[in-house]
């Protein structure tokens, strides 16, 4: 009866920003980011991406409460950069990595399907009950991969160049 609505997990209420940040009042070059309606999938990924940067002194994330779908990210950087710039870079690097992974997967899928089409007997032995994904190499090329994050071209993910993702309301 008192259960919160399930859509609260991923729908941002009107007038709420996806991501906000405040500077730490006591430590220089440190900030706390609050990302709405996200979980460990994104939080851990950004944290890892941030820790790869040598200018980042500290990066950590938490989900303060299991019923609040909020990720709190704390970042401290060296004084030659700003936390928000590093977070933006980390996000762009992650997007670049994911789009690379996606391209790799499509490539590999095309390779495997070509192989299967070349040797259908062998594949059929393994799994007779199920239809094997037969397709010619030509068909295998435009593999549809759905539900991916909007892909940012590699140019925009170059270091130092930050192109805001139109889907994320970031106010830097």
């Amino acid at each position: 009866m008192n259960a919160p609505d399930r859509f609260e997990l991923f729908i941002i209420p009107d007038g709420v920003k996806k991501i906000t940040y405040t500077y730490d009042p006591k430590i220089d070059n440190a900030a706390t980011f609050v990302i709405q309606k996200e979980d460990h999938s994104l939080g851990n990924l950004i944290r890892y991406s941030l820790l790869k940067e040598p200018q980042v002194i500290f990066a950590g994330y938490k989900m303060p409460h299991p019923l609040e779908h909020v990720v709190v990210l704390k970042v401290m950087t060296t004084k030659d950069t700003k936390p928000e710039a590093m977070v933006a870079k980390a996000i762009n690097d992650s997007i670049a990595e994911v789009s690379h992974l996606r391209a790799k997967f499509v490539e590999e899928l095309g390779r495997v399907r070509t192989q299967m089409a070349a040797a259908p007997d062998k594949a059929g032995e393994k799994d007779q009950d199920h239809e094997i994904l037969h397709s010619t190499p030509q068909q295998a090329q435009p593999v549809q991969l759905r539900h991916q994050e909007p892909i940012v071209t590699p140019e925009s993910s170059q270091p130092g160049v930050y192109l805001p993702n139109p889907n994320v309301d970031m106010d830097f």
């Binding site: 790869k52 690097d93 670049a96 990595e97 690379h100 992974l101 790799k104 997967f105 590999e108 899928l109 390779r111 495997v112 399907r113 299967m116 393994k126 799994d127 199920h130 239809e131 094997i132 994904l133 590699p154 993910s157 170059q158 270091p159 130092g160």
Partner: peptide
């Protein structure tokens, strides 16, 4: 990073088995 170029670890993926 190497200079201005992204040369970070590029993930690899290898499919061992694929059915419907």
């Amino acid at each position: 990073l190497q200079g201005d170029k992204w040369v970070g670890p590029k993930p690899e993926i290898k499919i061992q088995d694929l059915t419907e």
